[in-house]
């Protein structure tokens, strides 16, 4: 993106242009898609049947479809601060519920990223007002893995490990839900995955969450299949 002009008076014009650009870009994209497949948008209009639900961070640097090489219609998406799945959060619960029970997605991906601002904010000893309850979920992840994280002395490394552990815990939070347990018992899907995106090289790292093992592990306490 071009740097905003320094001249104060020109800034508002610059902003207008950056806004209008979105509409221009949208028109260009439609033309391109129609060259590939003239009926593409008619097909989309008839409904969605995505194979994937992606739960990722709101961070502007991680456009979910593009990093996975997927197009419109392929992936149902929820994005929030630090890709959290708190069990009392009606928003995330509704997304997962709809994706599993109505769209019958086959894979659920929880995707974090190194250098996450939400994780860094949660590691800052400060009152952040309305953000406190949300970030509290991340602090709870730290507490669950306190011994391991305390061992890491490098600040950046510690945060990056917390990013990974947060993905693990949020993937577990997904697996704890009734919709997932019941669908899996009946259909053998969805499968829950944990990934981390690296901004330095654009690559996704699969944390290899062992879905069946995790499911069996949580069901001692969180079994909601019946």
């Amino acid at each position: 993106m071009d740097a905003p002009p320094a001249n104060e008076k020109r800034i508002s014009r610059f902003l207008e242009q950056s806004h209008e650009r979105i509409f221009d870009n949208n028109k260009k994209w439609v033309e391109e898609m129609k060259i590939d497949d003239p009926e593409f948008f008619d097909k989309l209009a008839s409904g969605q049947s995505p194979e994937y639900l992606y739960i990722g961070c709101s961070d502007s640097r991680i456009p979910a479809n593009q990093i996975m090489g997927l197009g419109p219609g392929d992936v149902f998406i929820h994005r929030n601060i630090a890709n959290l799945v708190p069990n009392t959060d009606l928003s995330a619960m509704s997304v997962i519920n709809y994706a599993v029970r109505h769209l019958h997605v086959k894979h659920i991906i929880v995707c974090g990223h190194y250098g996450c601002g939400g994780i860094a904010a949660a590691m800052t000893p400060a009152d952040l007002g309305i953000l406190n309850p949300w970030l509290r979920n991340i602090r709870d992840v730290y507490r669950l893995h306190e011994a391991e994280l305390d061992e890491i002395t490098d600040e950046k490394e510690k945060n990056n490990r917390l990013v990974e552990l947060n993905v693990f815990e949020q993937a577990r939070n997904v697996i704890k839900l009734a919709a997932i347990q019941q669908s899996y018992a009946e259909n053998h899907y969805p499968i829950v995955h944990g990934w981390v995106f690296d901004l330095h090289d654009g690559l996704l790292k699969d944390l290899k969450v062992d879905f069946e093992k995790e499911l069996a592990g949580i069901q001692k306490i969180y079994n909601l299949t019946k």
Partner: peptide, 23 residues
């Protein structure tokens, strides 16, 4: 959250341009 509206793609934006919340 609808799969048919990948915001960055439909607006041909670059990574870094849109902070995104979808529900």
């Amino acid at each position: 959250a609808d799969s048919r509206i990948p915001e960055t793609t439909i607006c041909q934006c670059k990574p870094g341009e849109l902070f995104v919340h979808r529900n």
